[in-house]
Design a protein around this nucleic acid. Structure first.
Lengths: 194, 194
DNA sequence: CGAAAATGGAACATGGATGTTCCAATGTGG
DNA sequence: CCACATTGGAACATCCATGTTCCATTTTCG
């Protein structure tokens, strides 16, 4: 991050950085609501001309790739904030859930837009994926997480419960805190040592 | 079902019924793999000319609607087979999971293709949805299902765990029986009375 | 202020999916 | 075997998203 000024060829103006961000943010909102949305929709949501979108992302795939990178980055930051190596595994898992839940629509794109998993650097396992699996395995070793279930399965359980919680909040109009607390409740029970 | 012969204007030939089914089956496979697949893809997968597809389903939306009706029907059959009113709620829930899991790709369409929930008669709650919620509430009243969680939330939990299990089997190549048994294991724990 | 950067919008070319029509060929059932 | 149902494929018109080019205008910044 600290060398953004050399990331793209020549420095990116503050103005351009803001526009780029506006487009990315709009894209998250629009695409998570409708995967088939056109670039014109994204442009409108970003309050920007369609031409401008193409100026920043030549092809649709470039935009998707950038979104992927963005999500990947935020996922890592969130993972870092959760300090998964500290304290008992179950509590670390809760911290992780809370952090991931905050990513909201960005995270949902990973589920909803399949292209994400193939494009944009998600071909292989994410760092965050590895961290999560290791955390679960640590818990199983500690005896605080169900050792009778496959760690990879429990990883998917966590993801899908997060997805369910977010759906509950977005589509069913449940308050965010209700959704996330239900989610944590169930995650706790599902992962608990038997 | 028993009045299929008066459903469409005039009786539908056995031949036509077979092609219709071939198209619907192919559509399930193709569309669940790629939501943006073209009708030409569906036709090819069905071993049928593109023209023929249009002969049975004038517009794309007609095909989607028919798919929706098909899923809805199979969902009800599966629900009936699970005999949710018999025995303890947790066991009924397991039977339901097994039945739903067998629906495979058809069920996944409900998750993956958002249009399904708006088109094709899913605007309002499905019968199957109501049955599931009532079953959960029965369990909570019996004291065999976690009363500390909202019934609607638990419903979503079940759906998303089924989704996760199916993904595990389809995309990660896990054996079906492994996936479903992991799923049942977790569903049992997640729903158990606290 | 004034030059360079950044933008919006019109206009155009393109490709792919869609839906329709027509006809020859094949299959089906009486 | 023959009439009828069913099909495949070519050909066509249409629509829409995409991507590109060009230019006038606005914004930013030194």
């Amino acid at each position: 991050m600290e060398h953004d000024h050399i990331a793209t060829a020549a420095t990116e103006t503050a103005t351009r950085a803001r526009t780029r961000r506006a487009i990315l943010d709009a894209a998250v909102t629009v695409l998570s609501a409708n995967h088939a949305a056109s670039l014109a929709d994204v442009a409108e949501a970003a309050g920007v001309g369609r031409t401008t979108v193409h100026r920043y992302f030549a092809e649709r795939s470039d935009l998707v790739a950038a979104l992927g990178a963005d999500v990947r980055e935020r996922l890592q930051e969130a993972t870092a904030r959760a300090r998964v190596d500290e304290g008992p595994a179950p509590e670390a898992l809760e911290r992780l859930c809370l952090e991931y839940f905050e990513l909201g629509d960005r995270l949902m794109l990973l589920f909803d837009v399949p292209q994400f998993l193939s494009w944009a650097g998600f071909e292989e396992e994410t760092d965050s994926d590895r961290v999560l699996v290791r955390l679960i395995e640590r818990g199983q070793a500690e005896g605080t997480v169900d050792a009778g279930a496959d760690a990879e399965w429990l990883q998917n359980v966590l993801w899908s419960l997060l997805y369910a919680a977010w759906m509950q909040a977005r589509d069913y109009g449940a308050p965010r805190h209700t959704a996330i607390s239900s989610c944590l409740h169930t995650v706790r029970k599902a992962m608990a040592a038997s």
